[in-house]
Write a protein that binds this DNA or RNA. Structure first.
Lengths: 339, 339
DNA sequence: TTTATTTGCTACAACGTTGTCGAATATTTT
DNA sequence: AAAATATTCGACAACGTTGTAGCAAATAAA
């Protein structure tokens, strides 16, 4: 059932029918009604492939993320999808698995009109961003969230990463930690650098020596990460506080502490960024900094649609920063000093 | 840059160029090379909207799921995406949020060629399935996973839900439970009914009385679920074992046990279906039945692509069942009888 | 009444690609 | 050498929709 057939049924030209269905002012209310009724009766729906092709608009956006089995990105997708559904857009998902090469080829794939806009959170391997600059040249709307590329003029939605670094470190110091390690992900990522800077600045503020040995750079290789953490905790001069910049590193730390018979929070305190609804039920319950993931998704999607539809305000240099909040639990409980 | 322009650059007809790029046998190896080189040089890529339209194939599939902030569905998407990327397909995500009406309208949206195939896991409100039967009529390939519609002849990929029900119940009985409650989700879902049947059959096998009061039907309203669980655990004759058919209900139970000062596993033992990598670190660690979510995604996607491309074998009545496995942890530890 | 203007509809040309068919060579077979 | 067949390419018509231009008829203004 297409326009032509529907038009024949109605004894109208197919352009009249097309316009009637799109509520054009050129068509009288009477004919519009007749057409709409008939369309409903015959269950006519526009062919989205033809329509997209003609208009060179796909009504589709792409979400490019490192992974999806992750409370944070899951919630972001939720936020994005909620706005997309409101606006009648479709959402394509692409996973980079933290692989720069995959990210590049995905972006290549998206350059030719398949999508009207792109939302991306960079892979941790991404330092060079020429593949994204090409998008800008093609005028394809682009919004970054969380893992942004600072050098590209596209709207960005992030959390207050620098402040997270400060909060986490301050919290550990407050709870009595003297030697604080940071488990960070790739320094390619600005969020990582900012969290690190928050950590470093806070140490400095408290006159705590910065030690390279306490700054562990992890990546997507979980086994290797575990080795690094194990080595860290096995050292005679091991840290008494750990700031894990992502949840999975905190979980690994928990496991290794168990393995090494280290008691949390007695021997070592842990704080992490996390969105898990299970954090409070861990053994011990895990102090977290919770990011507003759903809101990030909604906000970023909202901006993207404004860009696509070229209405409403947005600025290319816009950087929307949403606040995270610290939820104190047992993993950073102060040690009671026995008399 | 389109075919016509590229052809002009090459002094060839655009149909020749089109064929050369698609490696047609009609074109000589020499011209193919020339064309391919030029295309690379000028960075030509086919317009996917035009190509899709012409072929009436979008190279896109839809994944319709209740939610995404969930270890299970996240992993399934991972599996789906991995196959899709191999095959050069794109993946659209739609969330129903357990809302039947949303599911229906999403399915309506997908009926007109926007996607080449659909994978779905039903919302818990879905009992009537006429919206899915319409898809069958339109010959749109459809594969169910996990939450299937038994009455529709489309390939299905599930786990051994009946067996899960048996395993979980047997495990609790083995650990000394006498009064076992089941927290199940909507009985609309066959997985739910099967798990229930496994539970009931196992009780019968052990001559344990089935009590309606111990069968709690939960839904997407978390607050209401919590009330139901709270009521269950506050009863003087409260259960000593709980089989939660989904993870979030186990987590709620943990929280309510804490609230009511019930000790797990001493006062009450808990087992649940879950894919969380944090289960082992909960307080106490949570005994789980782990579903092969990633494999479900891969298997279901594989079948869908066979259907779409009409090659390889598949049967409409095919029901692929993958096995889950029980991971015993502390939440179901046997009580030691003090002398 | 005549001339503008508006209203309501139709005709038609895109959009960029793909597949069919036919034509011109080139190659093989008789 | 002629005929049959293969190879290689070009012309062209779709695919279903949308937007522009045009053309009547109806209404308003002169």
């Amino acid at each position: 059932m297409n326009l032509k057939q529907l038009a024949k049924e109605l004894n109208l030209s197919f352009s009249t029918v097309s316009k009637a269905l799109r509520d054009s002012h050129e068509i009288s209310a009477i004919t519009k009604n007749i057409v709409i009724e008939k369309a409903k009766e015959l269950n006519y729906q526009v062919n989205p492939l033809a329509s997209s092709f003609r208009k060179q608009k796909s009504k589709t956006i792409a979400v490019v993320i490192p992974e999806v089995v992750n409370g944070f990105f899951g919630r972001v997708i939720n936020g994005i999808e909620s706005i997309a559904q409101e606006k009648g857009y479709h959402v394509l998902i692409y996973l980079t698995h933290e692989d720069k090469q995959k990210e590049v080829s995905i972006i290549k794939l998206l350059q030719n009109g398949r999508v009207d806009g792109i939302m991306i959170s960079l892979s941790e391997q991404t330092s060079d961003t020429t593949h994204l600059e090409e998008l800008k040249e093609k005028d394809l709307p682009l919004v970054f969230f969380d893992r942004i590329a600072e050098n590209i003029d596209s709207p960005k939605v992030t959390t207050d990463d620098y402040n997270c670094g400060i909060q986490a470190t301050e919290h550990l110091i407050e709870k009595g930690c003297k030697r604080i390690a940071i488990l960070s992900i790739s320094q390619n990522l600005s969020i990582s650098r900012k969290r690190m800077k928050g950590y470093l600045d806070t140490l400095e503020k408290h006159n705590i020596k910065q030690e390279k040995d306490l700054m562990i750079s992890c990546d997507r290789d979980d086994l290797n990460n575990n080795d690094l953490i194990r080595k860290l905790l096995k050292r005679k001069n091991r840290p008494d506080g750990i700031f894990a910049s992502v949840e999975k590193l905190a979980i690994s730390t928990y496991e290794i502490c168990e393995e090494l018979k280290l008691k949390i929070p007695r021997d070592i305190k842990i704080i992490t960024l996390s969105n898990s609804y299970m954090a409070g039920l861990l053994k011990p319950s895990l102090t977290t900094i919770k990011q507003p993931a759903y809101e990030i998704g909604r906000e970023a999607a909202d901006i993207l649609f404004r860009m696509i539809e070229k209405k409403g305000h947005y600025f290319l240099k816009q950087n929307t920063v949403l606040n995270s909040n610290l939820i104190e639990r047992d993993s950073t409980k102060e040690n009671v000093i026995s008399p």
